[in-house]
């Protein structure tokens, strides 16, 4: 057990080192010399390159650049070019703003996709299965922002509520209930949109896991014991089908960061995805590079958590 965790952490730390190198090397995709500025690339002007060179110590040898990059990052010296605030502090602040979206989206995803996936696996080939399968494909295939616009138009026209932003502007004087309702309306749509893709993918995955398990010999054994169908499905099959999903718990958070860029942009939600997008628009390179690094680190942490969780639930892995 401890050996497993130790091995896993060593492995993750080695990976982290390489992740840090890759995140750092992204800097070098941009032109490093003013003479290299491509007149076709409007994103870079010679002045910009000069500032860029200075901020990332591009005059130094490669390994010094690397050390400077992470020293500056962790000591708060890496500052946003827009407002000169420490990048890490900025990210943390925006992350907290995104948190309600993450939480509601995750709850929606997991509570909706599991019942759907399990039911369609048990009633394989039924009308319910076929409908949910097709809907899942539809949701996977629709461009996210197109779907968002359709939903916004639908909600705004049907319920007459504003949905853009975190709250309606200038609503400070109104009653508490109105303010709370306003918040909920604003929270609901982006969360639902954030969850739809997840629901589609996850319910398909649950279904295929469940089907896989239902065809196992031990499910037949359970039926041969004369157990009622519910007990066969929900005790014997489901317990096994759930195992791989434990590992997905660790990946919820990082997964949402990558996916939030478009949705937060559409809804003007002042979260981490929106911040990253604004940074890209404003060529705020310290922020862009840091977001990449931070999300990679989160993924890495997530996989570590998953490994440990799997260890706890699968009796076959006892070390």
């Amino acid at each position: 057990m401890i050996a497993f965790i130790a091995r896993s952490s060593v492995q993750k730390i080695v990976t982290l080192f390489f992740v840090s190198i890759v995140s750092f090397l992204i800097i070098h995709l941009a032109p490093g010399q003013p003479s290299q500025v491509d007149p076709l690339n409007p994103k870079f002007t010679p002045e910009m390159v000069a500032r860029y060179r200075q901020a990332f110590h591009l005059d130094q040898p490669l390994y010094t650049q690397y050390l400077y990059f992470y020293r500056d990052l962790f000591t708060g010296k890496t500052v946003s070019w827009k407002d000169n605030r420490s990048v890490l502090a900025k990210i943390w602040e925006r992350f907290l703003k995104s948190l309600p979206l993450f939480i509601v989206g995750t709850i929606l995803t997991w509570t909706i996709s599991f019942p759907i996936g399990i039911r369609s696996a048990i009633a394989r080939g039924s009308a319910f299965d076929q409908t949910t399968t097709f809907c899942a494909y539809l949701l996977i295939s629709i461009p996210g922002f197109f779907f968002a616009y359709i939903l916004i138009i639908f909600v705004v026209q049907t319920f007459q509520v504003p949905v853009i932003g975190m709250q309606t502007f200038g609503l400070n004087q109104s009653s508490v209930t109105a303010a709370v309702m306003d918040r909920i309306w604003h929270l609901l749509l982006p969360s639902v949109l954030g969850a739809t893709g997840g629901i589609a993918v996850l319910s398909r995955y649950v279904r295929s896991q469940m089907l896989e398990v239902e065809s196992q010999d031990y499910v037949r054994t359970a039926r041969a014991k004369g157990l009622p169908a519910e007990q066969v499905h929900y005790r014997h099959a489901l317990r096994n089908a759930l195992l791989p999903f434990v590992t997905m718990f660790g990946l919820i958070l990082p997964g949402l960061i990558g996916g939030s860029v478009i949705i937060e942009s559409i809804f003007s939600w002042p979260g981490i995805g929106r911040m990253a997008y604004e940074a890209i628009l404003a060529r705020d390179y310290p922020v862009i590079l840091t977001v990449n690094f931070v999300s990679a680190v989160l993924v890495l942490g997530g996989t570590f958590v998953s490994d440990v969780l799997y260890l706890l639930v699968d009796p076959r892995i006892r070390l």
Binding site: G258, I288, S295, A296
Partner: peptide
């Protein structure tokens, strides 16, 4: 496979966005 793991750490859409934003259109 470690290299694959490293690449998988980066959220792909945001990584693509970053790189595309850095390179000439």
């Amino acid at each position: 496979m470690r290299f694959v793991d490293i690449m998988l750490c980066f959220p792909s859409f945001f990584l693509i966005l970053t790189v595309v934003a850095l390179l000439p259109p």
